[in-house]
Nucleic acid binder design. Structure first.
Length: 560
DNA sequence: TGCGTAATAT
DNA sequence: CATATTACGC
């Protein structure tokens, strides 16, 4: 089967444009539902009496993909006639009444779902799932023609999926998907946290019962991915297995799990050592985490194909730059005084992360910070709430980029590069002069302490112009100096001092990396790039006629 | 109980 | 090695 991206063109924005028949005698509720649906870019045709609706579907049976039908209390057959007539059309019954027998009757007659009014947006948004479900579930050729395009569309997506996984493609699948329909996935993702949950529990289980496992699994997989990407606001952290080394890719997935206990539970049962009487939670498949882990391990070819209950003992939090960014953001937001594990945890809103995780991280974070800012001036970080903090960059007019590119620019006295750059200026005031283009909420400081393999592309999801092949060699930590150029200088004057060895490197490669680094100061330094040494900064400054440098920059002593 | 810290384990 | 865990004092 040929499955090119063009196959998807047919319904690129899949749920959008779904044609919905709305039959509701109550004009106000009808209008409301219609509005909501149209906001979601569904195409709605409303009917207020059953006969019109019936004639519509009988004259043009392929017009609609899904129907939403009110169960009337007035007319006695309560639109059941429609339900019977529209067997091919996935039909959702809606009503004000809470009558179990009515509900059951509807379901028995083929309604795919019964919803109480008022309908939440989630419910409405998710109606497409029924359509897909029906498209796959209707036996073979019996798929109503209105659903065929959907089935094909989804099938081709699924096919792409499986192709990708066969290739043991190094590119995370998420990226594949997103690149295949790049245009609209933003929008899709906007509300994506609302997608994953089927409108009703019944759907999840019901589907499993009926469907053939393959499709279903793939579909779940797909749906999961649709919402997995959400970059800015990842909500859960995936704990990683020990092997995690291979993957620098962002390990956060948005799972929006209602019960936060998911991971925590597993922790104590982690190695299942003493407590044989483990929790019974495990048997529930409610645990999205586990399934995503499974996917992941499949992706890297480590998966044990048989055991569905993949190791629950992955409990190490991988502090990806992204996760750390959130951490720092939270710390900053709280101010150092308030930055205690529990609050940080709250602010981070990362699912599955425990207070212990945060505490441990915080501990390390503080240690490193303190190591960098020796006692001399701990006020630099202990009173970050102080509004006068903005003075912490007295050299501002001098330096071109808002804050020194990385906080590490301001070199500590120690010759070695501290793995944990200190926070350049923890207070929000720093944002005041961050140039408008920058995501000012983002902490200026990101730890370059960890070199993620493949982090250029993966950890941040977006292309960071990685050095295509040969990433810069990790050089011995003495020579290579990245001379940071300041504002007055023109762009071309940024330079790199090479030692002979490095001259062999393709200049363009380096330039690319440097440009990238300069233009995106919020990213960690790419592997191989070092922040400028104190000496180089100073000499550069003096070369430009700036001889006096404040003795204290950002709390770090530069001179004397 | 929660926090911070250091030592220790994985 | 980075992180978790533990232990201890507050």
């Amino acid at each position: 089967m040929v499955c090119t991206a063009s196959d998807l063109q047919g319904w690129k924005d899949f749920p959008k444009g779904l044609r919905v028949l709305l039959l509701d005698g109550d004009s106000s509720s009808s209008a409301e539902i219609r509005t909501k649906l149209e906001e979601m870019e569904y195409v709605v045709v409303t009917y207020c009496n059953e006969n019109d609706a019936l004639s519509a579907i009988s004259s043009k049976p392929d017009t609609f993909h899904v129907a939403i039908v009110e169960v009337t209390t007035s007319s006695h057959d309560g639109n059941f006639k429609f339900l019977e007539a529209a067997k091919d059309l996935p039909t959702i019954m809606i009503s004000n009444i809470h009558c179990l027998s009515t509900m059951m009757k509807c379901i028995a007659l083929g309604a795919i779902e019964f919803l109480q009014k008022p309908l939440s947006e989630d419910k409405l948004r998710n109606i497409w799932q029924h359509v897909v479900h029906k498209a796959f579930n209707a036996g073979g050729s019996a798929v109503p023609s209105s659903l065929k395009p959907i089935k094909e569309s989804v099938a081709s997506i699924l096919h792409l999926e499986s192709e990708n996984s066969e290739n043991d493609n190094p590119v995370p699948k998420e990226l594949e998907i997103s690149s295949s329909d790049d245009d609209n996935d933003r929008e899709l993702l906007e509300g994506s946290d609302k997608y994953p949950a089927p409108s009703t529990p019944q759907q999840k289980h019901g589907m499993r019962l009926v469907d053939d496992g393959d499709c279903q699994d793939q579909l779940n997989c797909l749906l999961e991915k649709e919402c997995a990407e959400q970059d800015g606001e990842s909500k859960s952290v995936e704990t990683t297995c020990i092997n995690s080394l291979g993957e620098g890719i962002s390990q956060v997935e948005n799972t929006q799990l209602p019960d936060k206990e998911g991971i925590k539970e597993e922790e104590n049962s982690a190695d299942g050592c003493g407590a044989a009487s483990n929790d019974d939670h495990e048997i529930h498949d409610q645990d999205i985490i586990s399934s995503s882990e499974e996917n992941k391990s499949k992706a890297c070819g480590l998966g044990n194909s048989s055991g569905t209950k993949v190791s629950r003992k992955k409990m190490k939090v991988d502090w990806t730059p992204e996760l750390h960014r959130k951490f720092v953001q939270a710390v900053e937001q709280l101010g150092v005084n308030q930055a205690i594990p529990s609050r940080i945890l709250e602010l981070m809103k990362v699912e599955g992360l425990t207070r212990h995780n945060v505490a441990s991280h915080l501990q390390k974070y503080r240690m490193h910070k303190r190591h960098i800012l020796p006692k001399q001036d701990d006020s630099s970080w202990s009173h970050s709430k102080d509004p006068m903090r903005k003075n912490c960059y007295p050299q501002r007019p001098v330096m071109a980029f808002p804050p020194p590119y990385h906080s590490n620019h301001v070199m500590p006295v120690a010759p070695i590069y501290p793995p944990w750059g200190h926070m350049a200026c923890p207070s929000p005031s720093v944002q005041m002069w961050v140039s408008p283009g920058y995501p000012s909420w983002q902490p200026q400081e990101i730890w370059p302490w960890k070199s993620y393999p493949g982090m250029y592309a993966d950890a941040w999801g977006c292309p960071v112009t990685p050095p295509p092949h040969s990433p810069l060699p990790s050089h011995p930590p003495q020579q290579p100096i990245f001379r940071f150029e300041n504002a007055d200088a023109h762009d071309k004057s940024y330079g790199i001092a090479f030692n002979p060895m490095e001259l062999q490197l393709a200049d363009e490669e380096i330039d690319k990396v440097v440009i990238e680094a300069i233009s995106k100061p919020w990213l960690p330094l790419p592997l191989g790039l070092k922040p400028p040494s104190t000496e180089s900064v100073l000499s550069e400054l003096s070369r430009q006629g700036i001889s006096t440098v404040p003795s204290q920059i950002n709390g770090s002593k530069l001179l004397q």
